[in-house]
Nucleic acid binder design. Structure first.
Lengths: 137, 137
DNA sequence: GTGTTTTACTTTATTTATGAAAGGAGTGCA
DNA sequence: TGCACTCCTTTCATAAATAAAGTAAAACAC
């Protein structure tokens, strides 16, 4: 399905998706139009879903990175889900999981105070276990 | 530090980082050169760290998305860390955390079989708790 | 209040990249 | 051998990026 050139294209675009087609072509030993056609194909196949930027969260004042495992008390998750919708600003990802909880939240907060506020509000809807990220890697 | 135009720029680039500066300019009501200068500034400030692609993992055959909480037995984490380095293909993120474990791993595997192989190997170095992602959101 | 500097922008002109079209090389197949 | 298909290159018209110059408004010194 994907040959080595395609894999190289994905790798180069992962590192820098704003390469020009000419630059990308040079990296994978193709001309601009050739690599452009391949990228279009990868988009059509849905392998490339989109193009995004990497933002430094600390520079935006988001200093606290937390994972919160949710254990809902009630079988009706709707109140919890509605609450979450009101807190979208802090939520990066929200996964439904099997294992030690019902959901896993990945969040970023400006401060421990805001995290504390969030947890107090959350506690009306669910129990939780908190993990704070100290470091990546 | 950031005005509304900058926030709009970050939002638009998060949705599509391959916009031309001319298109981006139209969205935030600036000319190409003006928005180009702002983006360059955001890069210099380290707010924009880079440009990446969103890849559909399932289309690359990565069907199993898992979070693994690591509880190391020994105080010497080095064997575990070396083991991880040999398994880089599966690791998306590796966080050092406070809370219910020492580390949190975010991984993607082609299949439950590969996940099982990974866990059996992992078990020589650490205890773990496994959460498998059923769904995002 | 006046003159100066700074900042952020627009306009213009040159350079560079994109994208469409045509053509060629290699592969599979009847 | 001849045909169809895929994937590529080359060429060229169009569009975008970028550098440079000029403008307008705000900040500041005196």
């Amino acid at each position: 399905m994907l040959d080595n050139t395609d894999k190289n294209i994905l790798e180069e675009l992962s590192k820098n998706s704003r390469l020009t087609m000419k630059e990308l072509g040079e990296k994978v030993h193709l001309t601009g139009p050739a690599v452009s056609a391949r990228v279009a194909k990868l988009e059509d196949q849905g392998i490339i879903e989109g193009y995004a930027i990497k933002i430094n969260p600390a520079k935006l004042g988001l200093f606290v990175h937390a994972f919160i495992t949710i254990i809902t008390q009630s079988t009706n998750h709707q109140p919890y889900l509605s609450f979450l919708k009101s807190q979208e600003q802090y939520i990066i990802h929200h996964y439904k999981i099997s294992g030690d909880g019902c959901y896993l939240l990945e969040c970023r907060f400006p401060s421990n105070e805001k995290l504390n506020d969030f947890l107090e509000a959350l506690n009306h809807y669910a129990n939780y276990k908190l993990s704070i990220v100290i470091n990546e890697k």
